[in-house]
């Protein structure tokens, strides 16, 4: 029996298996975007009372930087046993003009990465237990 695929955190992204999107907030007065949307207040100075709308963020952006971690991160990160190095990528979204972090999708060789390359959001497993597979957004080169 296959495990349930559940989000590792509620409300941060859509669960669309083909074209998942990060969910942010947009302050409709200043035009600023926010991610994550944990604090429902515009942080643009002078816009604290501006109305906010939930908005999906761009699926694609350009790689700003990346790093591969070669050691086991402390809890609450759930490390596979044995430990597998993982890469964290920073990707710049053009329309939102913001950089968003995410892990690099499993199976992508970080050696192929180069700043400026086009990346897109995918859903991938963060960790699993007996019943569930916990999904999170990750970045993947569009070409891969």
């Amino acid at each position: 029996m296959s495990k349930n695929r559940v989000p590792a955190i509620d409300g941060w992204f859509t669960m669309d298996p083909e074209e998942p999107r990060l969910l942010g907030l947009r302050d409709t007065e200043s035009g600023s975007y926010f991610f994550p949307k944990d604090v429902a207040v515009s942080r643009a100075p002078g816009y604290a009372t501006a109305p906010l709308e939930e908005t999906p963020l761009s699926r694609r952006g350009r790689l700003w930087s990346y790093t591969t971690n070669h050691y086991k991160a402390p809890e609450p990160y759930v490390s596979p046993d044995p430990f597998v190095p993982y890469t964290v990528a920073a990707v710049e979204l053009q329309e939102e003009r913001m950089v968003v972090l995410g892990q690099l999708a499993a199976g992508v060789d970080p050696a192929c990465l180069e700043a400026g390359m086009e990346m897109e959001i995918v859903l991938d497993t963060l960790y699993e237990d007996d019943e569930n597979e916990y999904l999170v957004w990750k970045w993947k080169p569009v070409e891969a």
Binding site: Y66, V88, Q103
Partner: peptide, 28 residues
């Protein structure tokens, strides 16, 4: 609700992760 907890949980983004991102940026 703690961003400092969540960055470890969801990204494995330790402090050296951010240092690595800045360092790689200088290289690029």
């Amino acid at each position: 609700l703690d961003p400092d907890w969540l960055r470890f949980r969801l990204l494995g983004a330790t402090n050296p992760t951010y240092f690595g991102l800045y360092a790689r940026r200088r290289m690029e």
